[in-house]
C-alpha cells in the first residue's frame, strides 16, 4: 500500500474528503476575506480615487472661477475708468458752457449798464442844456439890457427888443 501511495506522490490518489474540505474551506475563506479585507480595501482605494478626482475637478473649477472673477474685476475697472472719464468730460463741458453763459450774461449786463449810463448821461445833458439855455437866455437879456442901457436911445432900444422878441418867438415855436 505504501509503495502504491509513493508512486502517485506520497498520497492516496485523489481523496474526496480532502477535496470537499478544500472546497468548503476556500469558499468560506473567500467569503470572509472578501467581507473583512478586500471590500474595505477596495472601497478605500476607490474612495481615494474619487477624492482625488473631485479634488482635481474642484481645483479646475476654482481656477476657472478665479479667472472669471479676475476678468470681471478687470471689466469693472475698465468701465469705472470710462465712467470717471465721462464724468470728467461732462464736468468740463458743463463748466465751459457755464463759463460762456456767465460771460454772455456779464457782457449783456455790462451792455445794459452802459446803455443805462448813456441814457442817463443823455438825459442829464439834455437837462443841462435846457438849464443852460434858460440861464443863457436870462443872462443874455441881462447883459443885453446892461449894454443897451448905456448906448441905446429910446427908439433903438424899442426896436431891438421887438426884434429880439420876434426871434425868441420864432425859436420857441
Amino acid at each position: 500500500m505504501l509503495d502504491q501511495a509513493l508512486i502517485i506522490g506520497a498520497s492516496d490518489g485523489l481523496l474526496f474528503g480532502d477535496m470537499i474540505i478544500q472546497l468548503i474551506t476556500f469558499i468560506i475563506l473567500l467569503a470572509l476575506i472578501t467581507k473583512f479585507a478586500w471590500k474595505p480595501l477596495m472601497n478605500v482605494m476607490q474612495e481615494r480615487e474619487q477624492h482625488i478626482a473631485t479634488e482635481i475637478d474642484q481645483a479646475e473649477q476654482s481656477n476657472q472661477e478665479a479667472q472669471r472673477l479676475m476678468k470681471e474685476a478687470n471689466d469693472e475697472l475698465k468701465s469705472t475708468r470710462q465712467n470717471a472719464q465721462q464724468i470728467i468730460d461732462e464736468a468740463k463741458d458743463t463748466a465751459k458752457s457755464q463759463q460762456a453763459e456767465l460771460l454772455q450774461q456779464a457782457r449783456e449786463e455790462a451792455a445794459r449798464i452802459k446803455e443805462n449810463a448813456r441814457l442817463e448821461i443823455e438825459q442829464e445833458k439834455d437837462k443841462a442844456i435846457q438849464a443852460l439855455q434858460t440861464q443863457v437866455g436870462s443872462l443874455s437879456v441881462q447883459i443885453a439890457s446892461k449894454v443897451i442901457e448905456k448906448e441905446l436911445s429910446e427908439d433903438e432900444q424899442e426896436k431891438l427888443i421887438n426884434d429880439y422878441l420876434d426871434k425868441v418867438g420864432e425859436d420857441n415855436e
Binding site: S11, D12, L15, F16, G17, D18, I20, I21, Q22, T25
Partner: peptide, 14 residues
C-alpha cells in the same frame, strides 16, 4: 467507502 481524508492536508488547508 470513498470518503477518505488525508488529515495532513486537512490541517494544512486550515
Amino acid at each position: 467507502s470513498w470518503l477518505d481524508f488525508n488529515l495532513s492536508n486537512v490541517m494544512m488547508v486550515l
